[in-house]
Nucleic acid binder design. Sequence first.
DNA 1: CTGGACTAAAGTGTATACACTTTCATATCC
DNA 2: GGATATGAAAGTGTATACACTTTAGTCCAG
Lengths: 249, 249
Amino acid sequence: MQLAISPDDFHRLEPYLPTGMAGGPSSTPVERAAGFLARLVLSHRVTPGQKVPMDEIALHIGASRTPVREALRRLETEGLVASLPNRGFILRRLEAVEVSQLYEARQCIEAFVARRAFERRNPGFLDELGSLHGTYEHVLRGPGDCRRLGMLVDKAFHVRIARQAGNPHLTASLSNMFDRLILTRPIEDFPLGRMGEAVAEHALALARFQSGTVDEAEAALVHNIRNGCEAIVAHLRSPLEFPVSIGTR
Amino acid sequence: MQLAISPDDFHRLEPYLPTGMAGGPSSTPVERAAGFLARLVLSHRVTPGQKVPMDEIALHIGASRTPVREALRRLETEGLVASLPNRGFILRRLEAVEVSQLYEARQCIEAFVARRAFERRNPGFLDELGSLHGTYEHVLRGPGDCRRLGMLVDKAFHVRIARQAGNPHLTASLSNMFDRLILTRPIEDFPLGRMGEAVAEHALALARFQSGTVDEAEAALVHNIRNGCEAIVAHLRSPLEFPVSIGTR
DNA sequence: CTGGACTAAAGTGTATACACTTTCATATCC
DNA sequence: GGATATGAAAGTGTATACACTTTAGTCCAG
């Protein structure tokens, strides 16, 4: 089975890997284990519900299962994997209800941080947000199956706003919600058409942050989240109404 | 040094231990390790900034360091301990700014869940909330140094409201914020006088949920959080203005 | 065939071992 | 005397070993 993300795309998404999963060569075995698992998931070699191949990860990072297990315990707390007693770990798989709950939680946090971020906005922040928006547009025009890659840049946009609000705990919490939504859903559950709309909604949100009111900025962001949730829930209820061909380039 | 929580108090707080830290005899070594660490912290045998005694935990739960380390990796993700390379783990210690950020995050989530919980309130919920409120009052009248014990019941009250909102992710997130506020602050940072006020504020919040409007219920809860934060920040700025004698019964 | 025991293989969870780092105490030099 | 080396002891992080569980296969009885 061919990788849905080409090596070229894959290299480009490295900066957007989940926190603590960058796993560069200089990091600890525990971090490298988490990083390699993230890559396995993003390249569709491990899909939600499947067993986490501890031995393969250990072999690949050149370590034993001990640090790999420590990494998986961390990811367990983050809701990314689940431990099945005496049967190892599996990549968790989100139920439809969990997806909408995560979107609800996103709305709770993002409505709040949008206001704080607006109050604390400055040229540097707006530039970075604009840049992330540009990357998002660019990625969507790219080749191959860009759904997870696109979601990572989507995440970067939203998390950047949260970061501007200055509350690391809310930022981390939001980041974790995105990780769960990105990594623990089958790729079929990402409606392809949705991403184009999201770009337009981000453009509006960006404009509101640049030259709008607090309420408008908050509303634009909440609108983006609500639409995303609705599109996905509708897609989950009838995933076969819009059969998609997965481009493999 | 005498335990600040008597064995009697200690037994009573078991039902309120953080999630995944109950650590009954039948649970896995990883869970028991987390549970025993929680008990070490709640009995002031390990204080914020101190090293986590891995060997002591391993010995006490009758296991080796391997599962203890896995447990600590989980707690690391939850922000309760920090890993110092080649020097083991320490119980994290919150800076003043982190405390106020956690209160801000609490307000973000609790304002949201208060509304959802109000919409979904029913007699069973109100009964349980009333019961938790009664326990809170009772604990504060109890003997010994009841600050951490009181905070655990305070947490139970707020988390019960979150649970009624029906979003497990927001509930878990709030629960984690309380754990950090309860376990990773030096006991001196808990202003003793504050708890009496909190009881009164809980009483009002309870009344609003029983016979008020959504806005009133939300406002009462936010008021409780804001007051708590202000009292603590003031206390942290001048902890010596109101020297307290720590009762040891 | 079908379903249930038995067996072998694979895989998991933890104890143990050990190389390596840090820490602390003693000794040495300026 | 204070600062810097030196050594041993303690402690950490991970590899390895192994008891135990699950899984998969095989055999046999019905």
